[in-house]
Simulated assay, not measured.
Amino acid sequence: MSTGSQATYFDEQLNYSLGDEDTSVELAALPDRARHVVAIAGSGGRVLPLLARSPGKLTCVDISSPQLALTELRLAALRALEHEEYTGFLGYPPRAMTPASREQCFRRLALSTPARSSLERLFEASGWAPIAYLGRFEKTMATLSRVNRLMTGQAGQRLFEATDLEAQRAYLASSFPHARFRMVLALLGNAAVLNSLLYKGEFPKKNLPGSAYGIYRGIFDRLFHQAPARESYFLQLIFFGQLRHAEGNPIECDPDVYARARRALEETEVSYVRGDVLEVVRQTGGTVDFLSLSDVPTFFKGPLEQDFLQRLRPGLAPDARVVTRGHLRVPRPDTSGFELLSPAFKEAMDMERTQLWQIQIYRAR
């Protein structure tokens, strides 16, 4: 969720190490063997799955050098580590990796000198802890999870004992502490709290109808009734502050996605660019046929929020697809010359594991 415009929040700290996006939607929207994919780097977890479509070129863009370093780390680990090593190295279940083993894995990775230096400092400062939980967002989720556990106790955590949706719905109907969890939602839906804990005053102003609390109630109602809670990494972060059930590992850990992405690395040209994603795309000369913008446009100010699609046009190939996300704020850009494809991917959006996002998919005509 790293923005392409300068903001106080997006400074030179690691903001996202796991993230809050399920890239399965972008993966569904990305055609096989696209010529040039440009994606906001974020934690790298939103980029790696795109390699499974074997693009000719993948450009990872971010204004944050720590986010680019972490993206480089993920792709270097993809190249060097077997699937089980990769998940343990990052800190995902089921395999727990010791700090010493994690350091040994790190030493095996081919990284640029700046990325290696930055990441080594981060790892050493944490005692070679799992990097998936070292971002500012993930630390905020850990704080919220402690509050959640205080409020909902064991009754809240027992939600994750259900191994199928029928059992989970029965537990929700009979024993889940709904009233206490609504207090957690009130905290989560408080923009002032999130500004203080995470966004440093840069939380995008809500433009969706209804209260933030009401929106979050809808989000969690969908999550609770969509699939077993143990299959959602976001729900695990909210209740545990970390992932405990491998069924909920993000899509970068899917064995098939991992294998296909790893094969693609043999041919895909990958680059890392620190800068404004709009300018990066505009300077490609019209070669970009897939652009994954995350929620960057929600941080745009003034006319740019309405004009960003038009500003991107010079860098987009015919029929290029542009994917944007919005949380409590959803941009309403000028779509002249673009077709909205989102309805064609409704099934993928309905199964997105965080349900935090309004996702728009545009095609340049």
Results as ranks from 00 to 15, higher is better:
Pro204Glu: 07
Phe160Gln: 11
Arg102Val: 00
Ile131Leu: 07
Ala162Val: 12
Ala192Arg: 14
Asp350His: 14
Phe308Arg: 06
Ala132Asn: 11
Ser5Lys: 06
Asn249Val: 04
Leu70Arg: 09
His327Phe: 14
Arg313Tyr: 10
Pro177Gln: 08
Ala320Met: 10
Asp256Ile: 03
Val296Asp: 13
Arg332Gln: 15
Glu72Met: 01
Asp62Leu: 00
Leu293Ala: 08
Tyr171Leu: 02
Lys139Ser: 07
Pro297Lys: 02
Leu70Asn: 10
Ala100Gln: 13
Ser271Glu: 14
Phe299Ser: 08
Ser65Asn: 07
Ile361Glu: 06
Glu269Asp: 12
Glu84Pro: 05
Leu81Arg: 09
Leu341Pro: 02
Leu340Asp: 15
Leu159Phe: 03
Glu266Gln: 13
Asp334Phe: 02
Ser271Arg: 13
Val61Met: 08
Lys139Cys: 04
Leu159Gly: 10
Ser211Gly: 13
Gly302Ser: 11
Phe176Pro: 11
Ser145Ile: 00
Lys301Leu: 11
Arg102Glu: 04
Thr163His: 12
Gly156Tyr: 05
Cys253Glu: 11
Leu223Asn: 09
Ala264Lys: 02
Asp307Gly: 04
Thr59Ser: 03
Arg33His: 15
Ile40Pro: 03
Ser174Pro: 03
Pro177Phe: 09
Gln236Trp: 10
Glu267His: 15
Ser112Lys: 06
Arg313Asn: 01
Lys206Phe: 01
Asp62Trp: 03
Gly127Leu: 07
Arg116Asp: 05
Phe203Pro: 04
Leu122Ala: 09
Ser54Gly: 02
Leu78Glu: 13
Leu75Tyr: 09
Phe224Tyr: 15
Pro66Ile: 00
Ser294Lys: 03
Tyr258Asn: 01
Thr284Ile: 01
Phe239Ile: 05
Ser211His: 06
Ala317Pro: 09
Asp20Gly: 04
Phe299Thr: 01
Ala344Val: 03
Phe224Lys: 04
Arg180Thr: 01
Pro209Thr: 02
Arg274Thr: 05
Tyr216Pro: 01
Tyr9Phe: 15
Phe224His: 13
Ser43His: 04
Gly275Phe: 05
Leu78His: 10
Leu237Met: 15
Val184Thr: 11
Arg365Gly: 12
Thr284Pro: 00
Arg262Glu: 01
Ser118Asp: 11
Phe220Lys: 08
Phe181Glu: 07
Asp289Ser: 11
Leu78Phe: 02
Leu243Thr: 08
Pro93Cys: 02
Val322Glu: 14
Ala246Asp: 09
Gly135His: 03
Gly201Arg: 11
Leu73Thr: 01
Arg53Met: 00
Tyr16Thr: 00
Thr163Cys: 00
Glu279Arg: 15
Glu84Gly: 09
Gln157Ala: 13
Phe137Cys: 04
Asp295Trp: 03
Leu312Glu: 12
Ala259Val: 00
Ser5His: 04
Pro318Arg: 05
Ala41Lys: 05
Phe300Gly: 05
Ser145Trp: 05
Gly91Met: 04
Glu252Ser: 09
Lys206Gly: 05
Val281Trp: 03
Leu18Trp: 08
Asn148Ile: 00
Gly248Thr: 05
Ser118Glu: 12
Leu278Thr: 09
Phe181Lys: 06
